[in-house]
Design a protein around this nucleic acid. Structure first.
Lengths: 207, 207
DNA sequence: ACTTTATAGTGATTTTTTTCACATTAATAA
DNA sequence: TTATTAATGTGAAAAAAATCACTATAAAGT
């Protein structure tokens, strides 16, 4: 199966578009519909599908429910994925309160911070001190972690996560984590995103 | 000049790494240092630099300050970029309070919401009703907008932004904005980011 | 001053990704 | 029933991106 990063991102977009099309009552779609909805070409859509062995009907397009089901399979949506959040600053809190994870079968199992005023065993998502991080990951077999701590603490938190058995990390700290292990790391850097945007806006002005 | 998306992202990462190296007292760096710090190859670093006409010294590497300066030029850091945020839910608030934009010459000029309890003319970043959005963009010649409203409102907000003259949008709403115009749109979808991570974690388990 | 060495810079090559274009086929129409 | 049409699926071609491998050269060493 494909290892093309862009292809995975596109599949994710297709799924997102499909869910909205389904809500609108669509029963079948054509590759061109998905292309329009996600800003790509119909050939690209079909090629992506073919990489994942997703097929439709000649002249009949694709069945929306079938597509969604196959994509849910790709992204492991038949299982619940437990996630922990480390760092309850603004971003951590935003994630904690974020609706919409549930329908993606993502469950926030716990959050961690160093600030004792934030601890709370009894909230829907319990908040524990950082010292309990390793123990919690191991006991609950957590595979996914979000790092939302300041940059100086990020590498240290990452090391604890790695040692405790985390397999995937979403990193909001504005540094590239030093990662030799097999842990998958996706970085989201808000400054960089805006910077990137500015680059393209400037480039567009020049042309 | 290059139109390679990945290359721009890498340049951004190099800059981030350079700032940290500078803080550690580094005066010069080699392509291999930057490669290590950002998880790429030294040949890639040099190739990226050559696309932007960035040069160093044979056997002497690159001067850190020079590199940072050239990259700041690329990303328009000599100008202040005014940004508005629409939607003061969790993500909007997180952005509003986000430190670190200043040093990137990004200034949040105002925020907008429909909830009147959030309005505040006198805070450091004023919060206005959505009705004032168009007027504010035009009067202050805002070029960059952040959409942090629920999905159902996102397209509508985007249309207002487009009509008022916005050139670049960072979209946190979980939909692909319908964009035929020349406006640059970068999407950040938290669910999709986690989903993506899960894909790679599952893929790693299988192999 | 000369030699050695380590690193930048880059054309050539390889790999990856996207696009093209057409054969195939299922639905519709005649 | 047969012809027509409109979409899929995919091998081939093109384009884009990454890697390789070598030249040039500036710094360090002798």
């Amino acid at each position: 199966m494909s290892t093309n990063k862009n292809c995975i991102v596109r599949i994710s977009r297709y799924k997102n578009a499909l869910n909205r099309l389904k809500a609108l009552g669509f029963v079948k779609v054509f590759s061109s519909n998905l292309a329009d909805a996600t800003g790509t070409s119909s050939a690209q859509v079909r090629k992506d599908f073919s990489l994942f062995g997703i097929t439709g009907n000649k002249r009949g397009g694709y069945n929306v429910d079938d597509l969604i089901e196959q994509m849910n399979q790709i992204f492991g949506k038949h299982l619940v994925h437990k996630v922990i959040i480390v760092g309850l600053g603004n971003i951590g809190k935003a994630l904690l309160r974020y609706k919409g994870f549930e329908k993606e079968s993502i469950k926030i199992a716990a959050a961690f911070d160093i600030d004792s005023s934030k601890f709370n065993d009894n909230s829907i998502v319990p908040v524990y001190p950082l010292e309990k991080l390793s123990e919690f990951i191991k006991e609950n077999e957590i595979k996914l972690g979000v790092i939302a701590v300041p940059d100086v603490a990020a590498q240290q938190v990452f090391e604890i996560m790695k040692k405790s058995g985390i397999k995937g990390v979403l990193n909001f700290a504005p540094i590239s984590l030093n990662n030799d292990s097999g842990v998958v790391v996706n970085n989201i850097n808000l400054e960089m995103e805006l910077e990137n945007l500015i680059y393209y806006v400037i480039a567009a002005e020049k042309s």
